[in-house]
Computed example of a mutant assay.
Amino acid sequence: MRFLITLTLLCALVPLPSFGHAWLKLKIATTEYAPYTSTEMQHDGYINHIIADAFLETGVVVEFVSMSWEDALEAAKSGEYDAVSYGNFVRAREDEFFHSEPITAESLVFYVNKNAGPENWRELSDLSEHKMGVTDGYLYNDELASYIQAGSNIVKNSDDDTNLRALIQGDIDVFPIDELTGWYLLERDYSNAERNKVMAIKPFISTVTTHLLIPKGQSDSQLILALFNKGLESLTLEGKLTRFKRLLKEGYYQHPQKKVNFDRR
């Protein structure tokens, strides 16, 4: 109880955001999964921009260090890093990590080949006559994961880009991916003619929430979680999360030289 009272008071009294007056610096392990996280993008990607600004709201600055997903999780658990950016909500991970409040909520959808894929679906069994590409190692929801494991129409590929290429070429008919990632990859790597060969269909499969992952068992884990959640709440109330999403759609993170009105509401 004393710890919680101290934590609450500390969160209420933290300094105003300023790089020059930061009272705490954190190291966060991150991965290459554009547009959410990427060393090749402005602010290390869309999600990392939100994370850095949320911490800055509480007078905390962060340093992102990029590595593989598996290394990021292990390094954070061993205490080398204060958090991992980012992870979808996975209940099985709660034994080892705190999930922050949701940073974003994204739709997991089916992209289809316009000529060969279905126009819509209601049950996964509706897709049994269509070749479905999936990305090896991706964590799908339980229902879709069970369907993939049992299905005879499944084609596994190593990454999302390979699946999108296969979808455009007609080697597969259907591909589940979160809608924002699908949009970003299609905009980044494909021509208008290629993009016109695919589309997202309704309904969406599920809603996926993104989170900062803070390893449990560290002395300051709950403090870091509380600070981040407080800063994230401030960004939400200020309308900045909506603005950051708009900036992504306008190409700011991909092309930082592009002139956009960063501060408009």
Rank of each mutant, 00 (worst) to 15 (best):
E179W: 01
T181N: 04
S18V: 02
K25E: 15
I201H: 01
Q42I: 05
E96W: 08
H255D: 14
P203N: 07
E129C: 04
A54R: 03
E101T: 05
L232G: 01
A22N: 05
T162H: 02
K27I: 02
K245A: 15
F262V: 14
K230P: 02
E106I: 07
F89H: 06
S219P: 05
E194Y: 07
L127C: 08
D178I: 15
F262L: 13
H21D: 14
F175T: 03
K114T: 12
D189S: 14
T104Y: 03
P15M: 03
K230H: 14
L235K: 06
G133I: 07
G251A: 09
E250S: 14
M1A: 10
Y140F: 14
L212V: 05
T6M: 14
L223E: 09
V109C: 07
D161V: 09
N163C: 11
S38I: 13
I154E: 11
S128M: 05
L10G: 03
T135L: 06
T209E: 08
H130M: 10
S219N: 02
D53F: 05
S107N: 09
Y86E: 04
T162D: 02
L225D: 00
V90E: 12
E74L: 12
L185H: 09
S234P: 00
E70S: 15
D173W: 07
Q257L: 06
R93C: 02
F228S: 03
S68W: 06
Q257C: 04
A34S: 08
D53M: 11
F64G: 11
N88W: 13
L232A: 02
P35R: 08
K131N: 06
F204V: 11
T236W: 01
Q254C: 07
V62W: 02
L212H: 03
S100W: 00
R264D: 15
S152D: 13
Y36P: 00
G117S: 00
L7T: 13
R246C: 10
N113Q: 06
D95I: 10
L235P: 07
L26Y: 04
I50D: 05
L127D: 04
R243Y: 02
L225R: 03
L26H: 06
R93P: 06
T58S: 00
E129L: 09
L9H: 09
V14H: 08
N113P: 12
H49M: 07
I28V: 15
F175A: 08
R246W: 13
K114S: 12
N48L: 05
W121R: 00
N141L: 10
I201T: 01
H130F: 13
N141H: 10
L180M: 12
F262P: 02
D95H: 12
P17R: 12
I201W: 00
N192M: 15
G133S: 11
Y86Q: 08
N115G: 08
E63I: 12
I5S: 07
V61F: 05
Q218P: 01
E106S: 12
L124T: 09
Y81K: 08
I205E: 07
K27D: 11
S68F: 02
L241R: 05
E74D: 12
D142P: 01
P256C: 00
F98S: 06
T31G: 04
H255I: 06
E143I: 13
T8M: 11
L73S: 01
K27Y: 01
I205S: 06
N120W: 04
G79S: 09
I224D: 00
P102S: 03
F98W: 15
C11T: 07
Y190F: 15
H255V: 12
Q222D: 10
L235G: 03
I51A: 01
V198W: 06
